[in-house]
Design a protein around this nucleic acid. Sequence first.
DNA 1: GCCAACGTTGGC
DNA 2: GCCAACGTTGGC
Length: 161
Amino acid sequence: MATKKNYWLMKSEPETFSIDDLSRDQSTLWEGVRNYQARNFMMKDMKVGDEVLFYHSNAQPPGVVGIAKISKKAQPDPSCYDKKSPYFDKKSTKQIPRWFCVEVSFKQKFPELISLDEIKQEPQLKDMLVVKKGQRLSIQPVAENDFLYLLEMASVKMARE
DNA sequence: GCCAACGTTGGC
DNA sequence: GCCAACGTTGGC
């Protein structure tokens, strides 16, 4: 069992749930993940205290808008039992839940987003999954170095203002 | 709105 | 277990 802190990138469409929504609510259950790879990251690898790059997808421009942290480990995703929810899944039962979600808490909103384009322009960040073509996973692991480098980019921007 | 890149489903 | 058809994601 790893004790070292892990880093992640989590995508959300701002029209559905933005960094401002998280800032207002302070914490949220990350419901609606219906991809096994993403689910497995939440179930197996995410720990309370892990830090998260909050990413706006389908946005103009798309990019990292702030920082969040994992505040509760994975639990069965309540939205898969809700017939009215777009995330309802009749194959998921209370006895054998198929989908899980973690709780994510607000940490910080960047004064200015780090756009996908800027990330692509940094040779340092070329291994980040988010810049790779066809990488659609909504939850991605992030290397510590890349996480820190991105924070540095955010603080440089801050200082410039 | 388009479409490439995937992931999932279901017939066989 | 293969694979075609279909659905989704998400940048552009």
